[in-house]
Measured scan of single mutants.
Amino acid sequence: EVYKVKIKIERVLPNGEKVEEEITIEVEGMSEEELLALARELAAEPGVRIKEIEIEKLPP
């Protein structure tokens, strides 16, 4: 199964400015739980906050 994972994050820059970013990846052969863990890892940097995680199962 192939999933499209869209992660919206908010990053706080050293000057205090907040910037929103969106990361989209396609992943194959992982469960939804593994995808959530991967998304959290991607956003685990200091000053980064996850705003939204969207997981979509793509048709075969």
Rank of each mutant, 00 (worst) to 15 (best):
E45H: 12
E45L: 15
M30G: 11
A39H: 03
E45A: 12
A44R: 14
L36Y: 15
V27R: 05
N15I: 01
P60V: 12
A37N: 10
I9Q: 01
K57N: 05
R49G: 03
P59A: 12
E28Q: 07
A44T: 09
E1Y: 15
G16M: 04
L38C: 05
I53L: 04
A37D: 06
P46V: 11
E52W: 15
I7L: 10
E52S: 09
E22N: 08
V2T: 09
E17V: 11
L38Y: 15
E32H: 12
G47M: 03
I50H: 00
I50L: 08
E10K: 01
I9H: 00
E52T: 14
L42T: 07
I50M: 02
N15L: 03
E22V: 10
A39K: 05
S31G: 13
E33G: 10
V2I: 09
R11G: 00
P60A: 08
S31R: 08
I9R: 03
G16H: 03
I55H: 02
E26G: 05
E45S: 15
E52L: 10
I50R: 00
Y3M: 03
N15H: 04
L13T: 08
Y3A: 02
I25M: 15
L38I: 12
G16A: 02
P60M: 03
R40Y: 14
I7K: 00
V12M: 05
K8L: 10
K4W: 07
M30F: 10
L58M: 12
V2Q: 04
I7T: 01
E20H: 09
A43S: 13
E17S: 11
R40E: 03
V27F: 10
E56M: 15
A43W: 08
L38D: 00
A39I: 08
I23W: 10
K6S: 07
E52H: 13
E26H: 07
E10R: 02
R40L: 08
V12Q: 12
K57P: 05
L36G: 04
E52K: 08
I55C: 04
G29F: 06
Y3C: 01
R11S: 01
K51C: 05
L42K: 04
V48Q: 03
E45R: 15
L36E: 04
G29R: 06
E10P: 00
P59F: 14
I9A: 01
E1T: 13
P60E: 07
A39Y: 14
L35C: 06
I25W: 13
G29Q: 03
G16I: 01
E26Q: 11
E17W: 12
E28Y: 14
A43H: 06
E41G: 12
E45W: 14
K51N: 05
E45M: 15
E52F: 14
I9Y: 12
Y3T: 02
E52P: 00
A37I: 11
P46W: 15
T24F: 11
P14C: 08
P60H: 11
E45K: 15
V2D: 01
L35G: 11
V48Y: 06
P14R: 05
G29N: 12
E17M: 12
L35H: 02
T24W: 05
K18D: 02
R40F: 06
V12K: 10
I55M: 06
N15P: 01
V19E: 05
G29D: 08
E34C: 08
K57A: 06
K57I: 09
E22G: 02
V2F: 13
A37T: 13
K6M: 07
I25A: 02
R49W: 12
E20W: 05
I23Q: 02
E17P: 02
A37M: 10
G47T: 08
K4A: 05
R11H: 02
P46C: 08
V5C: 06
I23E: 01
V2M: 15
K57W: 13
E21P: 01
I7N: 00
I53T: 01
N15C: 04
N15D: 09
L38F: 15
E1R: 08
E17N: 11
V27I: 12
V19K: 09
R49E: 11
E54T: 14
V48L: 12
V5M: 15
E54I: 15
K8A: 04
G47P: 01
A37H: 11
V27T: 10
E34Y: 15
M30Y: 14
I23C: 06
I53N: 00
E26S: 15
L58D: 03
Y3L: 04
K18C: 10
E33R: 15
V5A: 10
V48D: 03
A44I: 10
R40P: 01
M30S: 06
E17D: 10
E20K: 03
E10T: 04
E10S: 05
E10L: 07
V27Q: 05
E28S: 07
I7R: 00
E10D: 05
E33Y: 14
E33K: 07
R49F: 09
K6F: 11
E26R: 10
V48N: 03
I25R: 06
K51G: 02
I9D: 00
E22Y: 10
N15R: 02
I55V: 06
E10H: 03
G47C: 09
P46N: 11
E56T: 14
P46F: 15
A37Q: 10
V5D: 00
G29M: 07
R40C: 02
L13A: 06
E56A: 13
I55K: 02
E10Q: 07
K8E: 01
E33A: 14
K8F: 14
P46H: 15
E20M: 07
K4T: 06
I23N: 01
R49Y: 14
P59H: 12
E28M: 12
G47R: 03
M30W: 13
K6N: 04
E56S: 13
G29C: 04
E1L: 14
E32F: 10
A43K: 04
V27W: 09
V5I: 08
Y3N: 01
E22M: 09
L13R: 10
E33I: 11
K8D: 01
V2C: 04
E20V: 08
P14Y: 09
E45I: 13
I55W: 09
E52G: 09
P46R: 15
I55N: 01
K6R: 13
I50E: 00
R49S: 04
S31T: 06
S31Q: 10
E26K: 11
L13C: 05
K6V: 04
V12H: 08
L35K: 01
L36H: 04
P60G: 10
E34G: 13
S31Y: 11
L36Q: 06
E41H: 13
R40H: 03
E56H: 15
I9K: 01
